[in-house]
Structures are given as structure tokens and as C-alpha cells.
């Protein structure tokens, strides 16, 4: 039972700097300077020294204004970008290991893995839903094919099994199974988002990243997508990181929240606490400016 209270992911000093960078970049940027641009070299510190732990089956929210580095953090964790510094440890002891894929050791910094190992880890344990479905889906490939792609990456070579699993997942995300062979470009925005969720879930991920999933959808579709995520999270006991600038989404989904500004974490704690009793001036501003 004790094992459950071990973090599944430990992140230490995760940093991403765009541009050359200099030794003083991290000293002269951040919320106290109201900027993430280094005044010495002009580099942009997209996120600087972000540290946190992620526990199994919890939902962590990252909230902040546009350009505060929320998406950068999850995309660094999903290995979409190469980081400029920091450490990520993945404690797969708590996770049932797939015998085909050799996962990194608990004490191995994930950022030092080569691109092949990163990709393997991503396909075995991670799922991602992007704000823009064009990033997560192949628009010209059928929805079933999109989901099958992840299964192929995981080593499945059986058409019948892949189609069965795709149909199951589409049914779970409330997309009519008759549209299995239709490409997502024929679908509405909300449906695309749900296909993306189905694709992200296809390899039974340990950790799911949701990057502004409901932004740009109308309110009724937002509600359905959020309901779906909540339902799937409780069904599969997923560990989820939700990135959003919408405090409503954060309140609805998450149990713990980090507030980011200018590439730094300014406050973190239980979601209720953060929203009811914000301590940092920026968080206070954020909470009070809610419509």
C-alpha cells in the first residue's frame, strides 16, 4: 500500500530556453521581473526551474496566463521538445511493465535518454491530447487508423484486434462506430478532440497530458468532453496533467494545481485552497478576474 504514495513522476528544475542563453538568464527573468526575456542575451525562458512531483491516479492542473510556459512543461514531459536543463525521473515500479519494451530505470534521468528510448517510453506509458487536433491526429488517415497507429507502435500486427480496440475506444468517447473509417478532417472540432482522446488512451497510458483540451469548443461540447475525461479518469485510474487557462476546467477536473507566470511556478497546492485562498498576488488577480 505504501507504494501508492510514491510519486510516479519526479521533475526537478525543468528548464527550456529559446535562443542562445547566458549564465544569467534564470537570474533576471521570472514573475518578480515581470518578463521571461533575458535582458542580457535576449533569450526567452519558456519555463525555468520547474519542480514538482506527480502521484499515481491524481489529476494535476497547470494554470496560468498565455505565454506562461504551461504547455512547454507538458510538451517537455512528452518529449516533443528537447529541454535546456533539468531532470525527470519516472518511477515505473508502480506500473505494470510491458515485457516487449525496456523502460528506463527509476534512477535514470529521462532527459538523458536517446530519442529512440524516449519514443519507446512515450509509446508505452504516455498519452497526449493537444489543443490543436492537427498536432495529435493525422487528418487524412481514418480515425481507426489514427488509433491503430499507437497500437502498431506498441507492436500489434493484427488488423482485427486493432479494429476491435479502435471501435471500443470510439464507443467510449461517444463517436458512432460507423464512422471508424472516416478521417478526422470530416469531423467537427469536438469530435476531433474526442478522437484525440481515444488515440491517447489506446496504449493504456500511465500518464495522460491534456493541453487545453476544451479551448475553442462551445460550452455544451466543453461540458461533454470534460465529463468524458472525468469518467475515463475514474474508470482507468489515470494520472493526468491538465493544462488550462480556464479556472472552471481546473476546478472541475483537478485535485492539485500549480500556478505559472513568466515561466515559473508561483504557487502550488490543493485546487480548492488555491482557488479559495490564493496567496500569491498573481493568483489573487487570476481568481478575482474570473467572469
Amino acid at each position: 500500500m505504501m507504494q501508492q504514495w510514491q510519486p510516479v513522476l519526479t521533475i526537478k528544475d525543468l528548464t527550456k530556453i529559446y535562443g542562445g542563453g547566458c549564465p544569467r538568464c534564470l537570474e533576471v527573468t521570472g514573475p518578480e521581473f515581470e518578463t521571461n526575456i533575458c535582458c542580457h542575451c535576449g533569450a526567452v525562458v519558456a519555463c525555468g526551474q520547474v519542480s514538482f512531483e506527480l502521484y499515481p491516479a491524481e489529476v494535476l492542473g497547470i494554470v496560468g496566463e498565455s505565454g506562461s510556459g504551461k504547455s512547454t512543461v507538458v510538451r517537455l514531459l512528452y518529449f516533443d521538445y528537447d529541454s535546456s536543463g533539468g531532470e525527470i525521473y519516472f518511477h515505473n515500479a508502480a506500473v505494470s511493465a510491458n515485457p516487449q519494451v525496456k523502460l528506463p530505470q527509476t534512477d535514470e534521468n529521462l532527459l538523458t535518454l536517446n530519442s529512440f528510448q524516449k519514443r519507446q517510453l512515450r509509446h508505452a506509458c504516455l498519452g497526449m491530447v493537444y489543443q490543436n487536433p492537427h498536432l495529435g491526429l493525422r487528418m487524412a488517415v481514418s480515425s481507426g487508423g489514427n488509433i491503430a497507429e499507437r497500437l502498431i507502435m506498441a507492436g500489434c500486427r493484427h488488423i482485427g484486434q486493432m479494429r476491435g480496440r479502435s471501435a471500443d475506444l470510439l464507443a467510449k468517447t461517444e463517436i458512432p462506430v460507423q464512422r471508424l473509417d472516416e478521417p478526422p478532417r470530416n469531423f467537427s472540432g469536438g469530435m476531433r478532440q474526442r478522437v484525440q482522446i481515444a488515440k491517447a488512451l489506446s496504449n493504456n497510458p500511465v500518464i495522460l497530458f491534456l493541453d487545453e483540451v476544451t479551448t475553442g469548443l462551445d460550452l455544451s461540447v466543453q461540458a461533454r468532453v470534460l465529463d468524458l475525461i472525468r469518467q475515463l479518469q475514474s474508470e482507468f485510474h489515470l494520472t493526468v496533467i491538465v493544462v488550462s487557462h480556464d479556472l472552471g476546467v481546473i476546478r472541475l477536473l483537478t485535485s492539485r494545481t500549480m500556478v505559472m507566470k513568466c515561466g515559473r511556478v508561483v504557487e502550488s497546492g490543493l485546487t480548492d485552497q488555491i482557488l479559495e485562498d490564493p496567496q500569491h498576488p498573481y493568483t489573487q488577480l487570476l481568481v478575482s478576474s474570473q467572469l
Partner: peptide, 22 residues
Amino acid sequence: RRMHGEADYSQMWLYLYEDIVK
């Protein structure tokens, strides 16, 4: 070249999958 280097052939398999579906 990257795909060959990392033996990342899922795209080719996906192409065959789509062919069979179509």
C-alpha cells in the same frame, strides 16, 4: 533517415492498414 535509424516503421504499417481498410 531518422525513421530508419530508430527502426520507427509505424508509418509504413499504418499505410498498409489504411490500404486494407480502403
